[in-house]
Nucleic acid binder design. Structure first.
Length: 526
RNA sequence: GGGCGCGUAGCUCAAUUGGCAGAGCAAGGGACUCUUAAUCCCUAGGUUGUAGGUUCGAUUCCUACCGCGCUCACCA
């Protein structure tokens, strides 16, 4: 918004060089813009307050009760009862609206999303309060002291006899009835979105409750919450391009992590047998409905189990989250009913792709034959450079969008999973599953590869892929191999996209809605 | 990056085939002692995203650019 104003002023300066624009320039100069006029009016009141010796931004609030508690306590008290007992309260909040009737005025005080109506009446309310009220605006924070009563319409109301300004607001709030609709403005000025759009608050609470419930669930199962480096000398644990940064004191190039995986497994080697981390990962790639350059990932690792253990874990966890956060497991997501109670159906990647496309990926076990099979079926093989990536492409294109109900896909090609243990039945596959809900990948897990020699061979393959131009190939990590050589017990590992899970629970259409500050293109200069 | 759509007052939205750019909320002034989207009267607030072009005349048509949305590509 500021950018637009800057542009406007710059344009005006520029255009005023043209004589034909002189009358318009004069009008703009003398009349001023409405936004500036309203802000000027608020500033005038701010100065008027200061002139009276009132600090518009005092340091102390004084004791107050939470509005929520006041409402709860007096929920059942009718007008007569309040009148008889003369309850006094002191509360603080933001003025969100006001209504004036000459000698009687009301305003709504909101604190943490809960409203309490306040009244002031000429002849009853102290003059000092009425005078201060004249200098207040919608948006200001105040402390109110007064006696509780109920209006004829039954609204619990505090008759103010004490009023203290706590913070002056210098800009108007968005429209009170429609709220803030402009998507860009909602994300760029999230504070306004939260202030005037109830749904924004709801989503923030659902996400927070989801994270809290994840912690409670894992803590109860004996997992230890840990924190591992965000700044890593070598990134890994996923196929993605990293962000690069630099530590000046060591003149060291560092990467923002793309996953926590390799560090968490080092901890399992170290005897922390059940660990988890909820943290931000950073992937230097596209932004979409389901992707943000930084996002929150839950990763947990449990020794002495495998991917089947993780399947049970994530199934129980998702069901638990729905019950805890929403109170039920049947959710409505973008108009479709989704049942989050387990058990979830399981399909192999092979059978799912075959069912959707008629192509058996294990029959067409090399890139050329698989690409040919795809073309024969009239399918676009896209730009996938390898067999594994083509499998991924076919799956993403023809299977993933259909997986609305929670579904496990199992048995992935080894090429796509350099950190997963090879399947005992088929060395082309690994013991891995992904969980899909609402057409999105929510979770990813495998039996962790703990054979250091096989791991080294996989890293070498990745290095070859990188040399062949795969900029998402996993880098060789000697330090991690060294940890594996000390012996990683059989371990199941799981990653869950917390934001995507929150999308499902909050019925949010995009990841940006559950991300308080989604990444936006920078505002243009001038 | 490609395609489609959008950009009008602080906010939410109008504007006929190209013919003086409007309303509600918010703001300023006034009336009003039970409202809660209060109501009523008055006032002010706009280079219609930016820059060009066509035209007697452009919010409207054309081009480019900027931004946003959807979508495709990309992306575990």
């Amino acid at each position: 918004m500021r950018g637009r104003e800057r542009r406007g002023r710059a344009a005006r300066r520029h255009r005023s060089l043209h004589p034909r624009d002189a009358p318009l320039a004069r009008r703009a100069g003398s009349g001023g813009r409405m936004s500036e006029a309203e802000r000027a009016a608020r500033r005038e009141r701010l100065e008027a307050l200061r002139a009276r010796g009132i600090d518009p931004y005092p340091a102390r609030v004084g004791s107050v009760e939470r509005i929520r508690d006041v409402r709860d306590r007096h929920e059942g008290d009718d007008a007569a009862r309040l009148e008889a007992s003369s309850h006094r309260v002191a509360v603080a909040g933001r003025i969100m609206s006001q209504r004036s009737f000459g000698k009687l005025r009301f305003f709504d005080l909101v604190e943490d999303g809960v409203k309490l109506q306040v009244s002031a009446r000429k002849g009853e309310t102290p003059d000092s309060v009425l005078e201060l009220l004249d200098l207040l605006d919608v948006g200001d924070s105040v402390r109110v002291e007064g006696r509780l009563w109920r209006t004829r319409t039954g609204e619990l109301t505090a008759a103010a006899d004490g009023l203290v300004l706590l913070a002056k607001s210098l800009r108007p709030l968005p429209e009170k009835w429609h709220g803030l609709q402009d998507v860009e403005a909602r994300f760029r000025h999230r504070h306004l979105d939260l202030l005037v759009n109830e749904s924004a608050r709801r989503v923030a609470f659902v996400r927070s409750a989801t994270v809290r419930a994840i912690r409670a669930f894992l803590d109860a199962r004996g997992f230890l919450e840990v924190e591992t480096p965000v700044l890593q000398p070598l990134y890994g644990g996923a196929a993605a391009r990293p962000f690069v940064t630099r530590l000046h004191v060591f003149d060291q190039e560092l990467y923002l992590r793309i996953s926590d995986e390799l560090y968490l497994k080092r901890l399992v080697v170290g005897g922390l047998d059940r660990v988890y981390e909820i943290g931000r990962d950073f992937r230097n790639e596209g932004v979409s409905r389901k992707h943000n350059p930084e996002f929150t990932m839950l990763e947990c690792y449990q020794a002495y189990t495998d991917y089947r253990g993780m399947m049970e874990l994530v199934e129980s966890m998702v069901e638990h989250l729905a019950r805890t956060v929403l109170g039920h497991t049947r959710v409505e997501y973008q108009g479709k009913a989704i049942e989050l109670a387990g058990p979830y159906p399981r399909f192999t990647l092979r059978e799912a792709i075959e069912q959707a496309t008629g192509i058996d990926i294990l029959e067409c076990a090399d890139f050329a034959s698989l690409a040919a099979a795809a073309r024969a079926k009239g399918l676009d093989p896209g730009q996938a450079p390898t067999w594994g990536r083509l499998v991924d492409h076919l799956f993403g294109e023809h299977v993933e969008p259909t997986l609305q109900q929670p579904t496990f896909m199992v048995d992935y090609p080894v090429e796509l999973s350099p950190l997963a243990k090879r399947s005992a039945e088929d060395p082309r596959l690994v013991e891995r599953f992904e969980l899909f809900v609402a057409g999105m990948e929510i979770g990813n897990a495998f039996s962790e590869l703990n054979d250091p020699d096989d791991q080294r061979a996989r890293f070498v393959e990745q290095r070859d892929a990188a040399r062949a131009g795969d900029d998402e190939a996993h880098p060789m990590d000697e330090d991690y191999l060294r940890a594996l050589e000390h012996g990683l017990p059989p371990t199941g590992g799981l990653g869950v996209g917390v934001g995507r899970l929150a999308m499902v629970l909050a019925d949010a259409p995009t990841l940006r809605e559950v991300e308080l500050f989604p990444h936006l293109r920078p505002e243009p200069p001038q």
